[in-house]
Design a protein around this nucleic acid. Sequence first.
DNA 1: CTCAGCTATTGCATCGTTGCAAAAGGCGCA
DNA 2: TGCGCCTTTTGCAACGATGCAATAGCTGAG
Lengths: 342, 342
Amino acid sequence: MAGSTLRDVARRAGVSIRTVSNVVNGSVPVSEELRTRVQAALDELDYRPNLVARNLRRGRSGMIALVVPELDVPYFAELAREVITATRAHGYVVMLDQTDGDGERERELLGRESRATMFDGLLLSPLTISAEELRSRTNRVPVVLLGEHIFNGSFHHVAIDNVAAAREATEHLLGLGRRRVAAIGDQPYSTGETAQLRTIGYRQALERAGLTVDEDLIVPTQRFHRHLGAQAMEHLLALPEPPDAVFCYNDLLAIGAMRAAARAGVRVPEDIAVVGVDGIQEGQYSSPSLTTVAPDKAQIARTAVGTLLAVIDGSAPPPTETKAPHQLLVRESTVGTGGAGS
Amino acid sequence: MAGSTLRDVARRAGVSIRTVSNVVNGSVPVSEELRTRVQAALDELDYRPNLVARNLRRGRSGMIALVVPELDVPYFAELAREVITATRAHGYVVMLDQTDGDGERERELLGRESRATMFDGLLLSPLTISAEELRSRTNRVPVVLLGEHIFNGSFHHVAIDNVAAAREATEHLLGLGRRRVAAIGDQPYSTGETAQLRTIGYRQALERAGLTVDEDLIVPTQRFHRHLGAQAMEHLLALPEPPDAVFCYNDLLAIGAMRAAARAGVRVPEDIAVVGVDGIQEGQYSSPSLTTVAPDKAQIARTAVGTLLAVIDGSAPPPTETKAPHQLLVRESTVGTGGAGS
DNA sequence: CTCAGCTATTGCATCGTTGCAAAAGGCGCA
DNA sequence: TGCGCCTTTTGCAACGATGCAATAGCTGAG
């Protein structure tokens, strides 16, 4: 009932604890006779190794944690799946943890009483926490950062080229002949840098096209959620001179924006074209389907996991910045039903 | 570097290991003088308790695991958020694990070398694994089941009343005057029972309305994903006498179905009304927005977590079947833009 | 001045497992 | 018959923390 231990099994089989351990682990040769006797005892007592004890002894757990702000943000859920796949390929196991983008929780995760010590390494997608904080807190556990960039080069980091991604998205809109291109999702005061990089890319595209940036068309949002995208779109549509296209900093904002447009009787893409970032499944099935810049999530996951495991086993190079590929997926929200749909 | 232990701190502060432990835990009184001296040593060495060792000694980890088939299915992601919230309220921590709905992985999770032993309890949302298997495998770790019903009453179980939910969804469609109501998502051969219960509710509604069930209008699907909903809808639209309404067994199927309808030029809800189950955020922002039967996820989470913790501390009643409330949210996909939108 | 009675501190054993090295048993060869 | 080698089996210590009970140190009462 309370779970049998090696000792119980050993007593029952009339052998030493160590021999039972050898049978369980299979690493050391055990005579056929004892092996069967021990095996029988194992079965009868339904022995399960106590992994906590094993991990303590071995000094590693075979588990890494993936820490994301919000699991119900589809991008993170989809990324999590890829991370799990990539990790399993190495014989490791992933546990997920959510911080809610709450700085307090992120700190708690890394602080004194940190759960982090139970894992061999962390894949961290930080939202609020800042660079120095991170560095001062994670000097024990191997860490690889996903997405958010941290300035000083003290961490391994995997992300897409946010400037290029934003630029390409905006250029796509310009290439369709749109001239008043808005942006939804800037976060000028956030500690995170992703939004700011996307704003840079957006500006680059406009400038290269010889257009001046209308600051009123850049709508900041606190976070990247659907309802904030809708709000931002309502704001834009109420302008004296509304835009004819919007670059949204992620797909959820875009979906909210499209919803607001629909409710206002504004047609997408005829009246206003919409493009997002993230390449989430939801965008494939929205009406209209969503044009998006899709990061290669599988590649991000593989790189991040590979790097983390290298850090864990000590074979890692010094901290690297890795850029993962991304790809513009053109769908109905910019080119209508005639386009490369689905 | 390798992480300092109580021993290191004790040596440095010139006190016993036990005293350091007392300072760290704060449970036993320590004189002001020693306390400051130990605290200084703790800070200098940046001591972090080894949670693995602590858990071994204490016999509990303060962590439970939530095991779901697929994290990128929005229902599970949203449920996970509620579970995390509910669990934190009790001072526990949740780790998420994904089985991919793969029976192999579910078994692995519960099998001999089970990770489960590292957690104080499991919230399990089984997909493939069957009743006897579950029982024979989890005799160690406290378990509460979510969603899928397991026949013999050997587990605590929390779910909505699937029959009633399906019946209400179907009745809603009938109440709008629809007479050829289809169903998407039956799984007559699955080990899981949820789909079968929903089919029962669907039939009940038709029968109570005095309609005969047209078996051709019940379209089974392997799983509950968007693309399968789209396929099923295409199939239905190709029938000689297509339906004027569809009850989809979850929101993803419904969203896929709506997408297929849009592509085929069939209007929702004018030509065909659509209702789903799950109440996921995505359905609020789709065009048209999706009518759905929404389980009270927060309530499910609270009940499940409360029950699990009771099982863990031994104060649990015998296994119970708990029905969580659900609610029909009427939106555009059944009543059009005139309805209780948003 | 002694002793009970309290508080602060400590040592030892223990949680369940595995690494290490020694012990025990079997066999061939001289 | 005796020695050494190889294989199987075992005992001990350790991973890092905490529960328990005993010790040391102090105060106040008789």
